[in-house]
Design a protein around this nucleic acid. Sequence first.
DNA 1: TTGTAGGCGTTATCAC
DNA 2: GTGATAACGCCTACAA
Lengths: 337, 337
Amino acid sequence: MAVSISDVARLANVSISTVSRVVNGSNLVNAQTRARVESAIRQLGYRPNPFARGLMLRKSEIVGLVLPDLHGEFYSEIIRGANVQARQLGYSLVVSSSRGGEESHSLLHAIKQRSLLDGVAVMVSELTDQVHELLTDLRLPLVLLDSDIEGASHDSVVIDQRQGAAAVVRHLVMRCGAQRVVFVGGLKTNVDTIARFEAYRGVLEEGGLRFSADDVYYLDYGYESAYALARREVRGWAGRGSALFAANDEMAAGILAAAAAEGVRVPGELAVVGFDDTRVARMTRPPLTTVRVPMAEMGARAIELLCERVSDPKRPAARVSLQPRLIVRESCGAKAG
Amino acid sequence: MAVSISDVARLANVSISTVSRVVNGSNLVNAQTRARVESAIRQLGYRPNPFARGLMLRKSEIVGLVLPDLHGEFYSEIIRGANVQARQLGYSLVVSSSRGGEESHSLLHAIKQRSLLDGVAVMVSELTDQVHELLTDLRLPLVLLDSDIEGASHDSVVIDQRQGAAAVVRHLVMRCGAQRVVFVGGLKTNVDTIARFEAYRGVLEEGGLRFSADDVYYLDYGYESAYALARREVRGWAGRGSALFAANDEMAAGILAAAAAEGVRVPGELAVVGFDDTRVARMTRPPLTTVRVPMAEMGARAIELLCERVSDPKRPAARVSLQPRLIVRESCGAKAG
DNA sequence: TTGTAGGCGTTATCAC
DNA sequence: GTGATAACGCCTACAA
């Protein structure tokens, strides 16, 4: 059996209350006693039992982060930002993907059963009823990333998708002279894809350009599928004033590679832009014009909000909106302006 | 105050022991009583308090994963594999990077103070004394990834770096006819870099090739620095029978880009190979010959070992070794054989 | 099959 | 300043 507070008390010849005071840094304890207790603690290698402590304090100092998936740089950066922030605030971070495996294996499900977590930040790619229901009576501080649940009161951090998408499409139209813009999205039901599509469509209208449903494709955010699609279609897309807006960088990279393979010059015959500004954006040739999404910051702010709420459950719900930023490189054929 | 086991007992007109039995699925309880209790549980929305439970059971069902860094696909894939496995086994996964921030902010440090975790899997890129000391009296089930601590008894999962590195260098020498192989590593102190370098050197000798310290570079595993280096050096590297072995794919990608920028043909004038088989390996042009490291599996096996040990602390230490595999693409100028 | 009671290791509230 | 002692919510002999 591990050494407990009473062992320390015995060795130091004090009561357990005194030991507790020393451990918790209470200052109403005599310097000499403290020294004696501390020595006993060291000698015994005593470490407070976190369960017993949690039983009293009702805090685990652990928060959760649930993402739609753990694949790819986008999520990985969110985790990274979240981790830094969590550690900074003295919390540990449990991560999990909501997808994959049966529903009953999801972290949210587990949390609902019984959870040590002090709170959880959740990002969902599709807001199904199931998720909705799961989220509404979590009885746990909740921060939503990149979406909102009507009715429920919770903190959230979102990125201004529309603004970012509009900026890059506007750049295409205003500065690169695009007359036609092809849109390649992720899953049609994906909330980000929807927002980006709407912004895209809005800018087309605002610029007096014709919108054609034939110029809209829905894929899966993957390099491979974008590459495959572009191998078939890129010649049809190419031409004077042609541009393409891919809803993430990976797909844009796939399209770039396919264009090269098909002998279509970028940006000469086709301007291409992506979204997210992940690492690949700097690794393609030509480098990708894209929209920088502050991924790590998203994670960090979410955890920050979460921990704030953990320590002050009464504080009114906050909503922080992060602004993405246009990053002009060479794939669109126009310098920043 | 939340609803507790005694509330349920009262409502169902039974004792708390009976409720406990129902909750824990003990079968020595009358079907009718069980039904009554279950109904009460639902009605009250009762969820067992995990702290109280942990106090008795001494288990949190949370395990930790500490990586040197959370940046990049390599670590992200380990996390993904670990997460899947953890969920599968009914555990939650705490993730953290060991680097970044002061030492006192590290998860390991926190764990040492007091931790709810049932165990922890740790990967260190450099085995400093500090880390060593931290690890030796963790008093927690420990699995080491990709390294070993002498003396201490612990499970570990390693990948056979030397075998993988040897395979790819041998491929360069035997099948691609390389006469000279440049080595570009990560940090000189990095354990993986060291293993890969040694294998590289071994193969050179075994092939009767001259080893030159001038052909060895140490960078930081990053695209940018490799690009910068190659912009300066790639012309000197190029030539008949010249090849380059980069210790990861990112650096290889940077080198490829620099070669293109400098007008050096790959693989014509310089064969290039990488390591890891991350996503970029398929996104470069030409696609990268590399060594596939089963990243997700590493994470999964580590967690598997860890959870096994949590439930059976007496089981002898296990050591699983994962074999990387040569993946031949086009950057080396030779088909697989 | 069910109930009683003791204990898990802390913190918090009192007295002294 | 310090020490009893009562929670905290659950599990588990042991008794009935």
